[in-house]
Design a protein around this nucleic acid. Structure first.
Length: 298
DNA sequence: ACTTTGACCTGTGCGC
DNA sequence: TGCGCACAGGTCAAAG
């Protein structure tokens, strides 16, 4: 079992696992075991007791828990954040009301659900790159307000990307990682999408746009590749998601295999291609691609 | 306005 | 076996 590297498909898979158990649950108490993760925890986090979770949503890589007060609790998993349920009844006198936290357990949501009963939802995060935010409206959110389009939504299309890429000299790899353009792609799925589209990661983003500002064929392919790779990953995640409800230690998922990511030196999987996967470093991050079938010219 | 780099943080896996 | 070190990647802040 590898660590979760939570990009959009992983966050969506986690959301689908959490939703049936948290939606409708009343918050009995929230206990934070430390004052900060990546950033300081919201000051009034522990005062949410008495509210209920209405929906568990997602935007990009953010989980958005809508509360009965109208507020939204934003949760970002960083690189190593995870949720698990502990079914210990809150009212059992032999139990501590707040569970004895594990080394990397940082936030404990004590919940009471009308159907599923009492449980703890525990946020754990060894590297503490994750963070929380509490806001009333999305335009007040430091994180959500600047996000680009949802890649599985209608606003995501080749014309939109052409407009955003037209003045970008940076490599397409960096442009696809920019959350202000597309919300939800990370290092893994950028490599995967570029491989599917036959575009080398060093290609300047503006090379995918014509002089008149129209998307080139390659950008059309890339748009479809991004959408397809995310949909495939969500489908795979759904099939491997362990059931939060019945799992002893909580839910999770198994990372599936990728076509180029982390396959340095291995054969390219494009039919008929004799190339091997290469690893290069761009902006301090690994990119994996096949130099034989991914073009640098747009 | 755009682009790049460093910092944050800990577990893992490799070479010696 | 143990130690040191490079590496993993999401986001922001700062520098170019």
């Amino acid at each position: 079992m590898t660590f979760s590297l939570p990009e959009l498909p992983e966050v969506e898979t986690i959301r689908r696992g959490l939703a049936p158990l948290v939606e409708g649950a009343r918050i009995v108490a929230i206990t934070a075991h430390r004052p900060d993760l990546r950033f300081a925890l919201p000051e009034n986090l522990t005062t949410l007791a008495g509210q209920a979770f209405v929906t568990a949503g997602r935007r990009g890589k953010y989980l958005l828990f809508q509360l009965s007060s109208g507020q939204t609790l934003l949760s970002h998993l960083g690189m190593t954040g995870s949720y698990r349920f502990d079914r210990a009844a809150l009212s059992e006198p032999s139990r501590y009301h707040v569970l004895e936290p594990g080394k990397h357990d940082h936030v404990d949501f004590s919940l009471s659900h009308p159907v599923h009963g009492e449980m703890h939802l525990i946020y754990s995060d060894p590297r503490r790159f994750g963070f929380f935010e509490l806001f009333k409206d999305e335009d007040q959110s430091r994180f959500v307000s600047s996000l680009g389009v949802e890649p599985l939504g209608n606003a995501f299309n080749a014309e939109y990307l052409a407009q955003r890429f037209a003045a970008r000299r940076a490599p397409i790899k960096a442009a696809l990682l920019d959350q202000k353009i597309i919300a939800g792609l990370g290092n893994i799925y950028v490599s995967e999408a570029l491989w599917r589209a036959g575009i080398a990661p060093q290609t300047a983003a503006l090379a995918l746009v014509t002089k008149s500002g129209a998307p080139r064929k390659s950008l059309e392919r890339l748009t479809k590749a991004v959408r397809d790779v995310l949909e495939d990953a969500i489908a795979a995640g759904g099939s491997t998601l362990r059931d939060f409800k019945n799992a002893e230690g909580g839910g999770g998922y198994f990372q599936h295999s990728f076509d180029v990511y982390d396959r340095e030196g291995e054969p390219c999987r494009t039919p008929g291609c004799a190339g091997r996967v290469l690893r290069i470093v761009q902006s301090g991050r690994s990119s994996f691609y096949c130099p034989a079938c991914q073009s640098k010219t747009g």
